[in-house]
């Protein structure tokens, strides 16, 4: 055994901080480049919410005026950023587990956070695109936002995608390959409906209104409403719920990854 230790001492495999940072950077860059070159994966995820907003939020509410369009801008914004989080993160993770890429990366000395950070950045970029697209479309419905409101909504979207990344990641660690997209749809659409993203909550049955706070999208919606100036309640509880939600699912997912790969 002493000799094993001497093998270690003879050649330290330490890595400078700069090189570790470089590994994070290279991973994030690789993740972005590969999906930009394969638009068939990300494009539907990014355009789908815009299309929805155009039909239901712009064209169909013309008669009800800019306030309805403003309300729907926030809720469709939330609906929109859930998608890159859940699908961009969850589906790609499930596919990469299935194809063996994740196994390969885990065997390599890749800094453990780099892989997830790369995907997170990718999802945040996609969320930014979604919000910018919706902001552009909202002009058609004559929604007049202050630059600070537009900025706040953008920030809400870019950070708000993270809890859904964590949820998508967890789903991606439970279901392999092609099973994940179906499961994610099953969560995405009902959750959006139940937290009042398609129809305002007061239009839903009483019971559904009461359980709405268990959905993370309900809390993100409250923040998005505040961003466009339609909610004056304190935001801290919602932020904390989302944070707890993100951390919880992140922990669950990393535990599963470490155990089962």
């Amino acid at each position: 055994m002493e000799t094993v230790i001497s093998v270690l001492a003879s050649e330290p495999a330490s890595m400078s901080r700069g090189r570790v940072f470089g590994a994070y950077l290279a991973e994030a860059r690789g993740e972005c480049v590969r999906y930009m070159r394969a638009p068939a994966f990300m494009l539907p995820i990014m355009l789908f919410p815009g299309l929805f907003y155009l039909v239901f939020g712009v064209l169909m509410v013309k008669s009800e005026g800019a306030d309805a369009a403003r309300y729907l801008l926030a809720s469709y914004g939330v609906f929109g950023v859930m998608s890159p989080g859940l699908f961009g993160f969850g589906v790609s993770l499930a596919l990469e587990r299935d194809g063996g890429l994740l196994t390969f990366k885990r065997a390599l000395p890749m800094p453990p956070g780099a892989y997830l950070l790369g995907k997170m950045l990718m999802a945040m970029c996609a969320a930014a695109v979604v919000i910018l697209l919706l902001l552009a479309l909202s002009r058609l419905a004559h929604v007049a936002l202050l630059p600070t409101q537009a900025g706040a909504l953008l920030l809400t979207g870019v950070l708000g995608v993270l809890p859904f990344c964590a949820l998508g990641m967890f789903i991606g660690t439970v279901f392999k390959g092609q099973g994940a997209p179906g499961m994610l749809q099953l969560i995405y659409l009902p959750m959006s409906f139940l937290s009042g993203l398609w129809f305002p909550l007061p239009m839903l049955p009483k019971f559904l209104q009461q359980i709405a706070p268990i959905w993370p999208s309900y809390h993100l919606d409250k923040i998005a409403m505040a961003a466009v100036g339609l909610n004056n309640e304190p935001l801290l509880p919602h932020v904390l719920v989302l944070l707890g939600f993100a951390v919880g699912f992140l922990l669950l997912a990393t535990r599963r990854l470490r155990r089962y790969g």
Binding site: G30, R34, A38, E96, G100, L101, F104, A107
Partner: peptide
């Protein structure tokens, strides 16, 4: 490591894959 079946990112170029993997090492 060379594993039996690892589907590497199809759209990345060989040089990019090499640079990415090399970045993990001291």
């Amino acid at each position: 490591v060379m594993l039996q079946n690892a589907v590497l990112p199809p759209t990345l170029r060989v040089g990019e894959l090499l640079r990415l993997t090399a970045s993990y090492y001291p």
